[in-house]
Write a protein that binds this DNA or RNA. Structure first.
Lengths: 222, 222
DNA sequence: AACAATTATGAAAAATTTTTCATCAGTAAG
DNA sequence: CTTACTGATGAAAAATTTTTCATAATTGTT
């Protein structure tokens, strides 16, 4: 797991980091809000532990900033205070949970697991077979490999997943994926299906898209 | 507002529909789960009112199905029963709220507003100026017009929005948007900035991307 | 004002995606 | 086993996106 620790007290930050690494995770420390933003460019984190009091940008401000720019990485605020106002502010700023200092490492991992459990219910990935369609990056993930999809392939796969288990005819695909109201004069659909099949089935070793002769396609997975 | 009413009792469905239309919204009625899925292809709804008991596919099943395929339109379940088990099931299936029958129209609108208030906090749109960057469709929305962005333009705009208010130099843009570790040998960045500017500034009549001579770019909005 | 450095721009070139088309393969039914 | 129809495939063509390049415009400095 990739963990970002945003904490100006180096002692606390390093203790957390050591413990996470001991548990087999990967942890990065940022000593202030600006460093944190810096660290997040390009990299992906599964969770952010964020100190409430930070030099320059406060934890609350950073939290708001991240949320306002569409970043929804789970955030746990670390706060020294234990008054109710904090909790309200924290949740309103878009944090997922908070831990009051001093805390034990066990408490931190417990909170992380709880937050991630909740978060995973809303994560923007659609699983099928051994794969996942990542709706944000528009890629298919399989055993830490990434398959890039073109825009059309992405839309078609999303459509198949939405309708998995039911036969869909080409008129509907044409209408819903291509936004054509008239029926396709050519075989664009078949060609796109072919290309999508190749991408998916080169990676996984099974076929998801079944052809129902004279009727359409049927997507099977799980 | 676009409202989908999934309800097999036509009397209730039509009463709701009439009331919504009277309030200036747009409402579509689906009499069963399959019709509902049909209605959702291609169309967008802001909220779904979903009957608990439906012929064929139950409300709960439909709810689960939508959520499992990445659809996160707010759902309010309409249920005749009032036992705790329902509430738990509803929320676990991914519904946002529930209303027990019989209900008044005022109650429905109140619940809708409450759900939408909560939902909007997590919606995947980044506002800037009079515009919105839609992270799902990868378009810019402005006065019910849509501006299509290419993949690079989208990534660059997202990056600008994430870093708005701070000057970002080209080495960082190159690293974070293009994933090049070496500095750009050509002026791809300037060209992409130019094209993005044209798209945004043809539509809105103001300039968002400011050039800081010798330093980089600065995105200003709000 | 003149100069050097930086940025902007139009247009060509390259790469990629999307569509078309001709042809081959598979299916159902007589 | 044919036949007629439906779907699959490779490759060409068209459209779009991305990059490159030459040149023009702008900025800061002397």
């Amino acid at each position: 797991m990739e963990i970002l620790i945003v904490e100006d007290e180096e002692r606390i930050a390093n203790t957390l980091k050591k413990n996470f690494i001991k548990e087999g995770h990967h942890a990065v420390v940022a000593l202030n809000g600006e460093d944190a933003i810096e660290s997040m460019q390009g990299s992906h984190f599964d969770i952010i532990l964020l100190d409430w009091r930070l030099p320059k940008l406060t934890g609350l401000e950073l939290c708001k900033k991240l949320r306002s720019t569409g970043n929804d990485t789970p955030i746990i605020l670390l706060t020294a205070l234990n008054d109710i106002q904090n909790k309200v502010d924290a949740l309103e700023a878009g944090a997922d949970d908070y831990i009051t200092k001093p805390f034990s490492f066990e408490e931190v991992t417990a909170r992380i697991n709880a937050v991630l459990r909740r978060y995973k219910a809303t994560i923007k990935k659609i699983p099928f077979g051994e794969m996942n369609l990542n709706l944000i990056d528009r890629t298919v993930e399989h055993e830490n490999k990434l398959i890039k999809l073109s825009a059309r392939e992405f839309e078609l796969l999303k459509y198949f997943l939405f309708n998995k288990g039911t036969i869909i005819n080409k008129e509907k695909i044409c209408k819903d994926v291509w936004n054509f109201d008239f029926s396709p004069m050519t075989n664009v659909i078949e060609v796109t299906v072919k290309n999508l099949r190749k991408k998916l089935e080169t990676e996984a070793n099974c076929s998801f898209i079944k052809t129902i002769y004279g009727e359409g396609y049927l997507f099977l997975a799980d």
